[in-house]
Structure formats: C-alpha cells, structure tokens
C-alpha cells in the first residue's frame, strides 16, 4: 500500500510539472499584450514599455516561467495586472465560494444517485427502475443553466424561498451561506446525479451477475445481505471514477451557473480575467484547477486501493 501511494505521488508530481509548462506556454501564445490592454489604445509606446518592465513582461520567457513556478511553490501567485492585488488573496476569496459549492453539489448528487441507482438495479425492470431511468435521461439531457433559471423563477421569484442570486458570505454563519448556494448546487447536481445514478445502476447490475454473488446466496445470505456485504463495494470502482471526474468538473465547470446566480466564484474570476487579458490571473487559476483535478485523481486512486485489494500490489 505504501509503495502504491509513493508511486501515485511520483506520477502526481510529474503531472503537475507538465501541466505548469503547458499552461504557461498556452497563455504565452495567446494574442494580446496585457500592458497595452491595460493602458488603452491611446497609450504611448514608452509608457507601455515602462509598464511591461514593471510587470516583468520584458524578461526572457524561461526566467518568467521559473519566477512564476517559484512563486507558486511558496504560495505566491503574483499580482493581478488589473486588480493590482495579490492573486493569492483574490483566489482565496473566490475559493471560499467555489469549493463549498462543488462539495455541496457533489454531496447532493451522491445522496440522490446512490439510492436511485441501487433501487433501479435491485428492482430491474420494475416501475421504480423505469422511473429512475426516465428521470435520469431527462436529467442528463436538460442543460443545467436552463434548469437553474427555472428554479430561480419558481423558488426565488414566485415562492420567495431563496434569493435569486448573489452570495451572502460566511461571516453571518454557515446557514445563510449554504442557503445562497442551495439553488446553484441543485442545478449543478442534477445532471451529475443522473449520470452517477446510471453508472451506479449498471455497475451494480454487472456485479450482481457475478459468480461470487451466487456463492454468497448459496451460503444462505438474503438478497439484501448479498447486496450490502458483497455487491456494493465491488460496484464502487466505476462509481468512484465518475465521482472523481465530477468533482473536477464541478470545481472548474461552474462558470455558467456562477454567472446565472451572480456568485463570486473561480469560474467567474477566470471569465473576467480572460476578457481583461489578466493573463497572470488566468494562469494561476487554471494552474490551481489543474492542481485540484490532479489531487482529486490522486485521492480517487487511493480510494480504489482502499476498495480493491488487488490494486494495492501494482
């Protein structure tokens, strides 16, 4: 198990190094000079050059890369071109919205998907199964921003249970913050839950047709005992894969939902930074997201090994 963890750690570090180079190069070749953009079209060339020097844009590429990575390692993301504040602060602030939102959505989606998938698999072909399959089909098909707007219409405008957007902040306690994240989290969770329920169902159906399930029944276990003691843990491998992918997606992919609900999250930050050519912010946020995805995958790899002893050796 230790060797397995070490190997995963080594591949994690390699992945991060490669990702940093790719991100840096990609941002380098994007057209548009941040200094020129910040000063407007009427700026004089010498003013632009001065700003470039101030921002460090005149240094050779490799020096800028090393300075950027060196800063990242120490938690210094640099200073935003447009906000003129340390990027670490901006990201930290946004992360307090995006991270809880992603977790909230993930928990919701798991809480919906597991029972639904298990129900559908154990009662294959029943009305319950058909309902789960029908609803999840819809859930996958409906765009989440449209669903979000529908929810705003019903729960915020008509019923007035929730506010239509914005974020209450955490300083007044957890409840108001969670409340303002509830509608966005549901909107994000719906398609995820639909996919997860379907994966759960098919993984469980596959497992339930395995030989060792028959062995368990022959030992005298009831159907229910067989499901909980033998089938579920074996069905978790594909489900964990999907949960890992979903968490990364939820963290990075909430741009549209954050815009619909006016949430000051990472997604909106990237969106704004791109349109303002605030390249260093873009670089940093993307790097952070990549870091999160890689860490999540690392966690999923460890979870695999916890679930399946066969993987611990490799």
């Amino acid at each position: 198990m230790l060797r397995y963890t070490l190997r995963r750690l080594v591949s994690l570090i390699i992945a991060l190094a490669v990702a940093s180079v790719v991100i840096f190069v990609a941002v380098e070749i994007v057209p548009g000079d941040p200094a020129a953009y910040m000063l407007g079209i009427n700026a004089r060339p010498d003013t632009v050059a001065a700003l470039q020097a101030e921002l460090g844009l005149d240094l050779p590429v490799h020096e800028r890369y090393l300075a950027w990575v060196g800063g990242l390692v120490q938690g210094d993301f640099g200073t935003s071109y447009t906000y003129r504040t340390p990027i670490a602060d901006i990201i930290g602030e946004r992360l307090w919205v995006s991270l809880p939102l992603a977790l909230y959505a993930l928990i919701l989606s798991t809480l919906i998907a597991f029972p639904a998938g298990i129900l559908a698999a154990t009662r294959r072909g029943s009305v319950a199964d058909m309902l789960v399959m029908g609803i999840t089909q819809l859930g996958v098909a409906i765009p989440n921003f449209w669903f979000a707007m529908l929810m705003v219409l019903v729960f915020a405008i008509n019923l007035r249970w929730f506010s239509a957007g914005g974020f209450a902040g955490w300083e007044h306690g957890i409840a108001p913050g969670l409340k303002s994240l509830t509608l966005p989290a549901i909107a994000l969770a719906l398609p995820q839950a639909s996919i997860l329920a379907r994966v759960m169902r098919s993984a469980l159906l596959d497992t339930l047709s395995e030989d060792f399930i028959r062995t368990a029944r022959a030992k005298g276990l009831t159907r229910r005992q067989t499901l909980w003691r033998h089938a579920l843990r074996n069905a978790l491998i594909p489900v964990l894969t999907i949960i890992g992918l979903q968490f990364s997606f939820l963290l990075a992919g909430a741009i549209i939902i954050e815009n619909v609900f006016f949430l000051p999250g990472l997604g909106r930050l990237v969106f704004q930074a791109i349109s303002q050519r605030d390249l260093i912010v873009v670089e940093s946020v993307v790097m952070l997201l990549v870091f999160a995805v890689i860490i999540v995958n690392f966690a999923v790899d460890l979870a695999y090994a916890a679930v399946d002893p066969r993987l611990r050796r490799s």
Binding site: E210, D211, F212, R233, N234, V307, D308
Partner: peptide, 13 residues
C-alpha cells in the same frame, strides 16, 4: 461448490 474457483470468491474480502 462451483465450477469456476477464480470467480466464485468476492475479490475485495
């Protein structure tokens, strides 16, 4: 007892 011993046991227990 069954024919296929390779699959008759739960692999994760």
């Amino acid at each position: 007892i069954f024919q296929e011993p390779m699959t008759a046991l739960n692999p994760v227990r």
